[in-house]
């Protein structure tokens, strides 16, 4: 990790050389009276892992829901691959979503389907893979990655909390999306599994050049995966830099995470 770089240095070369994949500017979002996002600005470059830290209920999930087009912003722009998400037709949005992987905080497993069917679903219906041999080998690869090979014929209700989390991760990663939005990938897992998941996120980045936003409260996960960390409080980003920068920050709020 390039811990010597300051925030400025880190930003400069990347914005010149690397393509901006996700561009958020002046994003605002309110639910009724409650202003959740007040002014969010963020550029994520191709192949970069950005970790978002922040207290519960500050709008981290809302931010990535705006990126995936599940929520429409009240103000400001959210561009993915250079196109405004809010202005897309249904078809364009569908197209974009095949390139985005979204790991739900709750897992959102299809609970009427077995583990295998959960993984088959995106392969058959999003990537339209028809070849059963290819489907099987990809399922195997995905389950191996999260260590769930034994559970392949189980129903989600028969899995433990951590296993459910890992299955959710496998289901999202199986389509090898260009952008990954992880909503608390390691919450509720034991330290060993957490570390394995963090390594897996890192591996995805290296192997497939995946661009990722990772929301987490787990400092170890942040340390392992982050190229850049942004800290969020009260609807705004208040600090940004490499993990080491953030760790050395003087700001009391930022410090309280460590």
């Amino acid at each position: 990790m390039e811990d010597k770089e300051t925030i400025e240095e880190l930003k400069q070369p990347s914005s010149k050389k690397k393509e901006v994949v996700i561009h958020i500017k002046g994003l605002k979002k309110a639910f009724g009276e409650k202003e959740v996002l007040k002014n969010i600005n963020l550029d994520v470059h191709r192949g970069e892992n950005v970790v978002i830290l922040g207290k519960s209920g500050t709008g981290k999930s809302v931010t990535i829901e705006c990126i995936a087009g599940m929520l429409a912003p009240d103000e400001g722009e959210v561009k993915v691959f250079g196109d405004e998400v809010a202005g897309m037709t249904e078809k364009q949005l569908k197209e974009l979503r095949t390139k985005i992987g979204f790991l739900f905080q709750s897992g959102a497993l299809y609970d009427s389907m077995t583990v295998r069917e959960n993984l088959e679903f995106p392969l058959k219906r999003v990537l339209k893979v028809r070849d059963q041999a290819e489907i099987d080998s990809r399922i195997e690869e995905a389950l191996d990655g999260v260590g769930l090979m034994d559970a392949i014929e189980k129903m989600p209700s028969e899995l433990s909390g951590g296993m459910r989390k890992r299955l959710g991760l496998a289901r999202t990663l199986i389509v090898k999306p260009e952008i990954m939005l992880y909503d608390e990938p390691t919450t509720g897992l034991d330290p060993v599994t957490s570390r394995e998941i963090s390594q897996l996120i890192l591996k995805m980045q290296k192997k497939y050049k995946t661009t990722s936003i990772i929301i987490t409260h787990d400092m170890e996960c942040a340390e392992i995966t982050a190229d850049r960390v942004v800290v969020m409080n009260d609807g705004e980003y208040i600090a940004e830099g490499s993990f080491e920068d953030i760790k050395r920050s003087k700001d009391e709020f930022v410090r309280s995470f460590f």
């Binding site: 095949t98 739900f104 995106p122 999003v126 999202t172």
Partner: peptide
């Protein structure tokens, strides 16, 4: 939501 956001 998960089906929707996955592009299915």
């Amino acid at each position: 939501d998960a089906m929707d956001v996955s592009g299915a």
